[in-house]
């Protein structure tokens, strides 16, 4: 169930980063890379379900979501691709 909260946290981190570069949030995000770290308790499908709900109708609606598994602890937003 905490996937919902992690999706929320992720979105707020992404917004913080974007607003710094594009204060108007007028760029479309085309790809987001997440890194799932140990202890791997975040379920990908469940996370994606909540995240997709949160970004419906937004500048991120069509972003491709990509996942990597890493050794460090935690759950990371690794990188974003933004349209030119």
């Amino acid at each position: 169930m905490h996937e919902a909260k992690i999706a929320e946290y992720s979105l707020s981190i992404i917004k913080e980063v974007l607003i710094e570069k594009y204060p108007l949030l007028d760029k479309k995000v085309t790809k987001v890379v997440f890194a799932i770290g140990r202890p791997y308790t975040v379920m990908r499908d469940s996370f994606e379900f909540y995240f997709s709900e949160l970004v419906k109708g937004s500048f991120m609606e069509d972003a491709e979501l990509v996942y990597e598994y890493v050794e460090q602890e935690g759950f990371y937003v690794s990188s974003l691709d933004v349209e030119e």
Binding site: I6, Y9, F75, Y76, V77, V82
Partner: peptide, 14 residues
């Protein structure tokens, strides 16, 4: 364009 973020989401809680 790629933007590196590399932020631990759990940091919000931690």
């Amino acid at each position: 364009m790629e933007i590196k973020v590399l932020k631990n989401v759990m940091i919000k809680n931690n």
